[in-house]
Design a protein around this nucleic acid. Structure first.
Lengths: 250, 250
DNA sequence: CGCCTGCTTGACCTCGCTCAAGGCCCGTGG
DNA sequence: CCACGGGCCTTGAGCGAGGTCAAGCAGGCG
C-alpha cells in the first residue's frame, strides 16, 4: 500500500531529491484518510490543531470570515500541505474548506515532531515549504493591493496554470471545481464585477471558458497584462541545504 | 557587551521562556551591526541571501516593485526578524527598505544552521516565528481584500499600536517615521484617498495626528470600525513545544 | 529668500459595488 | 414526460468609493 503522502513527497522532491532514508520515514508516517464534500469544512477556525492535513485530490481553500463575508487566502491543490503552517500553533487561525469533492490525509503533529527529532533535515524542508507558502501570500497581497480587476483575475489563472503544470495536472485547460463567487472572494472582487471582467477577458480572446473549465488562449498577452512572474511560486527552487537533483525526478 | 540580538530574544520570550543554555547560544551568535538611512535599501530583491537581519531600532519595510509602483508587504519594528523567511532561500524575493534611520544586526545563515544543529528547539522557535509572520500576512490579505479605506487604515494603526505596546514602545501615541505615501502603498490606496480618509477619521475624533505622530483617541470605536482582533499577531501565544512562562519576563 | 518635499484640498471621472431581473442548467416531484 | 424550483451565470442600471490630475500650502534647508 502506497502512503498517500507520496503526492506531497513528490512536490517536495521537485525542489530537490531527498535521501532514501528520509523519503521512507516520511512515507511510513501513520496517516488517516478522509473525503470531503463540496463546501464541507475540513478544519474550522479556532479548533485545536493536532494533525497536519495533506491534500491528495481535489481543491481546498484557506479562508477567514469578516462580517458576513469571507476572504479566501489561498487555494491548495493536489499534493499541497494544507495547514502545515499550524504545526506550531495551538489553534487553527483560519478555516479549511473543500471545493468540490476532495481527499486528504491527516498526520498527527506528534508524529511529525518525532520525525523531526530523527531527521532534522526534514524539518528544514518542511520549514522551507511553509516559507514558500508565505512567499505566495506576499504575492497575493501584491495582487489584491495593486492590480486592477482584469490583471488580477489573469494573475490568478496564470498561477493556477503554473501550479497545475508543475504537478502534471494541466491538460491544456483547467477545471476549477468552485463557483465564480468563490473565485471573486479570493480576489477581493464582487461576483458581478468579477463576472463582467471575465467576460471582457473572454471577448478579448485571452481565455475561453466552457462550464467551469478554463482555457488560456493567449498566454503571452495574459502574462503581460498580469505582469506575471512565476518565481514567487518556488516550484523548482531547492532549499539551501538540499543538493540540486542530478536529473529531474518524474 | 550585550549582543544586539537581545531585542529579538525578548520578543521570542514574550511567547515563552527559553532554557538558559539556548538563550546564551542565541545571544553569543556573531553579529555585525549596520545603520541605515531613510529610504536606504538594506536588502535588494534578487540578491543572494547569506545573512539574516534583525532590527534593533527603527522601522523597515518589506516591499516589492510592480510597474513603477511599490507594494509594501509588511512593516518590521524593533526586535523583529526582518528576513528570517529567506533563511532557506538562495535569493531575497523582496526588498528591505529603511524608514527613517534604523539599526540592525546581521547573523550569517551558516551560523544559524550550526545553532539549529546544536539546539533543535531553537529552530522550532524560529520556525514558529516565521509562521506568525505568515499569519500576519494572511491578515493583511484580508485587510486589503475586504475592508474599505477607513476601516483598512484604522486596522493598520491598531496593529501598530498593539505591536508597539507589546514591546513597550507605545507611549500613548505612535511616531511613524514614514510619509503618508508609504502608508498608502502598504494599504493599497492612493496617497490622495488615504489622506482624505485619514482626514475623516480625524474629524470624527477617532485619532489625532501632529506631524508624524499619531494618537488613538477612541480605541473602542476604532476597533469596531476596523473589526480589529489582535489574535493574528500571536504576541503572547507560545509555540507548542515551549512551556508557558511561570512569570512574565520583563 | 527660494526650492523641495510632503501634506491638503478640489474637481472630475472611472472602476467596481449594489440592486435587480432574466436566462440556463439540472435535479426533483408530479 | 413536463413543471417547477434553485443554484449559478449573465447582463443592465445607477451610484459611490477611490483613482488621477492639479493647484495651493506648510515646513525644512541650502
Amino acid at each position: 500500500m502506497v502512503s498517500r503522502l507520496s503526492d506531497y513527497l513528490r512536490k517536495l522532491e521537485r525542489r530537490g531529491v531527498l535521501p532514501q532514508e528520509e523519503r521512507d520515514a516520511l512515507l511510513s508516517l501513520p496517516a488517516r484518510e478522509r473525503v470531503f464534500d463540496d463546501e464541507e469544512i475540513a478544519i474550522k477556525e479556532g479548533q485545536p490543531s493536532l494533525e497536519a492535513m495533506f491534500l491528495v485530490d481535489g481543491v481546498v481553500s484557506r479562508q477567514r470570515k469578516l462580517d458576513g463575508h469571507r476572504q479566501i487566502i489561498f487555494f491548495c491543490l493536489q499534493g499541497d500541505a494544507v495547514d502545515l503552517q499550524s504545526i506550531w500553533f495551538h489553534r487553527a487561525d483560519h478555516s479549511i474548506v473543500s471545493h468540490g469533492t476532495s481527499r486528504a490525509v491527516f498526520v498527527r503533529h506528534a508524529d511529525l515532531y518525532d520525525l523531526f527529532r530523527e531527521y532534522p533535515t526534514l524539518a528544514m524542508v518542511l520549514w522551507h515549504d511553509t516559507l514558500v507558502d508565505a512567499s505566495i501570500l506576499r504575492d497575493w497581497n501584491l495582487n489584491v493591493g495593486h492590480r486592477r480587476a482584469r490583471p488580477r483575475i489573469a494573475h490568478l489563472f496564470l498561477e493556477f496554470e503554473a501550479r497545475l503544470n508543475a504537478i502534471g495536472a494541466y491538460d491544456g485547460g483547467l477545471r476549477l471545481p468552485m463557483s465564480q463567487k468563490t473565485l471573486a472572494d479570493a480576489l477581493g472582487l464582487s461576483l458581478v464585477h468579477f463576472n463582467k471582467s471575465l467576460a471582457i477577458l473572454r471577448s478579448d480572446g485571452l481565455l475561453k471558458l466552457t462550464g467551469r473549465r478554463f482555457e488560456i488562449l493567449d498566454r503571452a498577452r495574459l502574462t503581460k497584462l498580469a505582469q506575471f512572474n512565476p518565481d514567487y511560486l518556488h516550484l523548482r527552487a531547492p532549499p539551501k541545504l538540499i543538493p540540486q537533483p542530478e536529473s529531474e525526478p518524474l
